[in-house]
């Protein structure tokens, strides 16, 4: 890697400043907007650190979906301060808390920075293992090889976590509708024109990210986040984006079930959980990723939609 460029200094300085701004803004809506900007800035940091796969995921999931989640939660929370625990405190108490928090932040920053500086760069055992095994993985992108082949069970459980989160949000959120993604319509001509303009591109982009993830940066999760964004735009524009309530569980869990079936099938075929043969690995992984693309998009869209009800009387803001 080359030396430090000006862009590195700017990015490394901008990231903590944006983070502090996101946490210090009194207005939580502004804080959420700054948080999205922070996510996109960190995506640039990933590019500078030669991690384009993570840059795509950060921009789509870390900034996009998480930002949408915060916006939706803020729209639903009552009160001008939107504070769940209003506590009365004197000016002196507030100053004391701020001071203590500042000292605490300084100590933590110093300790972690000390760790970053002093930890020696160790011999990359795993890196050389991955490099040696990469030709047998069936894909050219080493990150995809690790995600779906070498450590496939990590990804299997990750999809399980996503599924549990969709279940949790659907259970906790107070809804009057059945498992519905509709009813979130935004009125006006702008959203319609915008949807007509970007929807075809977004769907092609999601499929492209899935396909190209085999050899270049990309993959099922990045594609799923883009597809989830397209799904949200569809619903906001009032297009029929809804899935019949009876079919929703199948769409949500389908990707996980395909993954699980392939994992079990590999035990019978090749004698190991998710143990692929080099000749056919690519196609099994493509099957898993195609299922994940649709299911994870549905799960991410569900997380945003089902976080709260739309026709809440107090949410009219």
């Amino acid at each position: 890697m080359n030396g430090v460029a000006i862009i590195d200094v700017l990015l490394a300085a901008a990231v903590p400043v944006l983070a502090a701004a996101a946490l210090l803004y009194r207005d939580l809506f502004r804080a959420a907007v700054v948080f999205i900007v922070l996510g996109l800035t960190i995506a640039l940091v990933w590019v500078r650190l030669d991690a384009p796969d993570i840059a795509l995921a950060e921009a789509a999931v870390g900034a996009g979906i998480t930002g949408a989640l915060f916006m939706r939660a803020l729209g639903a929370l009552p009160g001008p301060t939107r504070s769940a625990h209003p506590v009365r405190s004197s000016r002196f108490q507030r100053l004391a808390v701020r001071g203590a928090a500042g000292v605490f932040a300084g100590i933590v920053a110093a300790l972690v920075a000390w760790a970053v500086v002093t930890v020696p760069s160790s011999d990359p055992v795993l890196t050389s293992l991955v490099r040696d095994a990469a030709p047998d993985s069936g894909v050219g992108n080493p990150v995809t090889a690790v995600l779906l082949n070498f450590r496939g069970y990590d990804t299997l459980l990750e999809v399980g976590v996503l599924l549990l989160a969709a279940l949790g949000v659907s259970t906790i959120g107070a809804h009057r509708h059945a498992a519905s993604l509709g009813g979130t319509r935004v009125r006006g001509p702008v959203i319609l024109a915008f949807a007509h303009l970007v929807l075809p591109g977004l769907i092609v982009l999601a499929a492209y990210l899935l396909w190209t993830g085999a050899d270049l940066p990309g993959g099922a999760f990045q594609g799923a986040a883009v597809l989830a964004g397209a799904w949200l735009i569809c619903a906001f524009a009032g297009f029929p984006a809804d899935v019949a309530p009876g079919r929703m569980p199948a769409v949500l869990a389908g990707g996980f079930c395909i993954f699980l079936l392939v994992a079990a099938g590999m035990v019978l075929l090749n004698g190991g959980l998710l143990r692929f043969m080099p000749a056919t690995a690519k196609w099994w992984m493509l099957l898993i990723e195609s299922g994940l693309l649709v299911s994870c998009a549905a799960i991410l869209a569900t997380l945003v939609f089902r976080l709260t009800d739309d026709d809440r009387p107090e949410a009219g803001r």
Partner: peptide, 26 residues
Amino acid sequence: LLYGLSGALLVAIGLTGAIASRSLVR
């Protein structure tokens, strides 16, 4: 190293925000 130090600041800022904020969303 530069980005590592930047990440260390993020950890400190985030942890402080998570502990010292009054609002649950924050």
